[in-house]
Design a protein around this nucleic acid. Structure first.
Lengths: 132, 132
DNA sequence: TATTAACCTAGTATGTCAATAGGTATTTAT
DNA sequence: ATAAATACCTATTGACATACTAGGTTAATA
């Protein structure tokens, strides 16, 4: 399941893309339009700023803004950032994950195939694909 | 992420398919081969019996057995049973889920497309595809 | 200087996950 | 009959994540 962190982040990105007029958009407005707690969004948006997905500006006239064109964002990078991983199992999510059953594991190929499919799906989708 | 419930259930099914000799296979043996706590497996296997995925027999000489040929099981039904749902979001997992943003939700089509892809992937895989 | 906004630290209720513990009921072999 | 092996049942637990809420400080602008 995709958590609210990932889902809300996606909606913030869509909101920023749709309401872009060159200036910063206050979180208050986004929260109102999206009907999401502003306080909760603060936490999510902070991570998005830290990851250079968006830029924030304090003070009057401040808010948030995209820092690339909408078609330069993939849904995958947004979700992966917020969810930590898109992998279905720990052995694929964590490169350094130790599992001594790795060689004989009969389900690993299944998870690998699934992982690749999911990755390709979400990284193939761009922010622009979600608009309008 | 697929939980241990789903992953272990899949491994139990594979183990039962591979070690099938006509008689019942005790959980003790499965737990040993798969290196999984027998006590924990009991909980998982109970649900599998209740869902008629496998049959159990008490007493000496008892154990568990598949009740169909391995190619008649899809990975999807096993995982969906154990995980509750394979859907990425609550609005798709629960048919009666109320969401008043449904009509205007810009991410719902994404989740629907993803959901279909995941469903088709796992229901297309049979237990036999995981063996050998 | 007042206002508006981001940014920061902390806390919290609820639920799920991944087990563990200790029993009872059932069947078969001796 | 009895012993052994097995499934089956109920309850509990520690750790962690999720989805928030609360109350402040800093920064920028009109």
């Amino acid at each position: 399941m995709i958590s609210t962190r990932g889902r809300y982040a996606l909606r913030v990105m869509i909101d920023l893309a749709e309401n872009d007029n060159g200036s910063f958009i206050p979180l208050k407005d986004i929260a109102a339009r999206q009907e999401i707690s502003k306080k909760y969004l603060e936490i999510i948006v902070k991570d998005m700023v830290n990851a250079n997905l968006i830029v924030g500006a304090s003070g009057k006239g401040g808010g948030y803004k995209l820092c690339r064109k909408p078609n330069k964002y993939s849904v995958g990078e947004i979700l992966e950032l917020m969810e930590g991983t898109l992998s279905p199992v720990a052995c694929l999510a964590d490169k350094n994950h130790a599992c001594d059953r790795k060689e004989k594991c009969q389900t690993l190929p299944l998870w690998e195939e699934f992982d690749t499919m999911v990755h390709d799906f979400f990284y193939g989708k761009k922010l622009t694909d979600l608009i309008k």
